[in-house]
Design a protein around this nucleic acid. Structure first.
Length: 401
DNA sequence: TCTGGGGTCCTAGGACCC
DNA sequence: TCTGGGGTCCTAGGACCC
């Protein structure tokens, strides 16, 4: 049986949600109606555009570009700081409305959901009707607009929601692929990014239709596994399921762009400690253990280097992971000024899945410390509790909670 | 370029084993 | 040693997404 899939995509999510929050707090100005952007803190060197209003878009401002550029394109652009707590709130509100229609919802990102309606369509109702109903309800009940893609698989639903914006519902059924999707430039196809674009142009593929009409075998020869996938996408083929059960993460990482380039390894190490604490705290909250520790740096020249190490025993222990991370950092550090540092853990497994090894002589005391610190963090907030090594942290560095 | 931060997946080379 | 071929694991890097 054909699947009945919806893809719900919030229009200019961060900006819309900021606008709604401001209106709710009594402000008169709706920032969706002026040239405005949501951006990171320039003083902290995080000054990129995270979202833009339609008027900002009209002057050529692009998501991801430096705010500096946005200001050049539009000197009177209004800039607002991002607030992920607010975004999470509206994301959850959206999700709760969608849950009234099906339990099979995949939260693809903070502002996008796939819905599998196959077994949840009320008698005498079409998928399209449900889509319009959801679109209307969100607008009326939550105050922001969404685009909804209506199709028989996830790929086509996602492509459809990306058609004309904002506040639109589009279908993309098989018989509509050639008319609605094939005329689009190849860059519009899901999973075709900046790096591969020139390669497609080189072989004469300008539109999605051009790719669809190529021989699959030729695409596999040139692009390997990726070629097969992307050729199938161009032809509207995708049999992936809506992953609606909360999946456990496969890796957990935190990274930070420093307020200025660090050349002092001790200072870098202090940041590393804070990052390890953040990562292991999250790891323990998931009740998981990690087998691989990874440290990444970005130099002042934007070169990225990473080292990783597989542990003998999976762990969630701050001290063990920190010791490994320190070794990796010292291997990596070549005296070039450092712009960014990141720590991540990979190869995660459930804590109770792993047999308590006889050789797991993990220091009991450290486990107790981690536990107490975690409890205090839950009680008083992440930033309030820290250990000695972090105390001299640059006052300019702000960690998220 | 005054260029974030969180992820997933894939590839390729080297080590090591049989 | 003028050393085969296949499989798996580990690591580094890079592509893509939002």
């Amino acid at each position: 049986m054909e699947k009945q899939i919806l893809h719900v995509d919030v229009n200019n999510a961060f900006l819309s949600w900021t606008a709604v929050e401001k209106l709710k707090n009594g402000e008169e100005l709706d920032i969706r109606t002026i040239p405005a952007i949501i951006g990171g803190d320039e003083a902290q060197r995080k000054g990129i555009v995270l979202a833009k209003s339609n008027l900002a878009k009209q002057v050529g401002i692009q998501t991801g570009e430096p705010i500096f550029f946005a200001r050049k394109k539009c000197p009177n652009i209004q800039i607002y700081q991002s607030d992920f707590k607010v975004y999470k709130k509206y994301s959850n509100a959206l999700y709760n409305i969608l849950l009234e229609y099906t339990e099979k919802i995949e939260r693809f990102s903070i502002d996008e959901c796939f819905m599998d309606m196959t077994e949840y369509l009320p008698k005498g109702t079409t998928l399209l009707q449900i889509a319009y109903q959801i679109n209307k309800r969100i607008k009326e009940e939550l105050g922001f607009t969404v685009n909804i893609g209506v199709a028989n698989n996830k790929l086509l639903a996602k492509m459809a929601s990306d058609f004309q914006k904002p506040d639109k519902v589009h279908t993309l059924y098989k018989e509509e692929i050639s008319e609605k999707m094939w005329k689009l430039p190849i860059s519009e196809l899901f999973m075709v990014g900046r790096k591969n674009l020139p390669k497609f142009h080189k072989i004469g593929v300008k539109t999605i239709g051009d790719l669809a009409k190529k021989e699959e075998i030729q695409m596999i020869k040139i692009f390997g596994k990726y070629g097969k996938m992307i050729w199938e996408y161009a032809n509207g083929i995708d049999d992936s399921e809506v992953v609606y059960e909360q999946e456990k993460p496969k890796g957990i990482g935190n990274s930070i762009t420093l307020p200025y380039d660090y050349s002092n390894i001790e200072k870098i190490e202090e940041v590393l400690i804070a990052l390890v604490e953040q990562v292991t705290y999250r790891l323990r909250r998931y009740n998981m253990l990690a087998e691989v520790v990874n440290v990444q740096i970005k130099t002042n020249e934007f070169k990225v280097y990473s080292h990783q190490k597989k542990l003998t025993i999976p762990t969630d222990n701050t001290k063990i992971i920190l010791e490994e991370a320190k070794k990796l950092l010292y291997e990596l550090y070549k005296k070039t000024p450092i712009r960014l540092i990141g720590v991540r853990v990979d190869k995660l497994c459930e804590k109770n899945e792993i047999q308590l090894s006889l050789f797991d002589n993990t220091c009991k005391k450290q486990k107790e410390i981690d536990k107490v610190v975690d409890i205090l963090k839950e009680k008083y907030g992440y930033d309030k509790i820290t250990r000695a090594g972090k105390m001299n942290l640059d006052k300019n560095i702000k960690f998220k909670d």
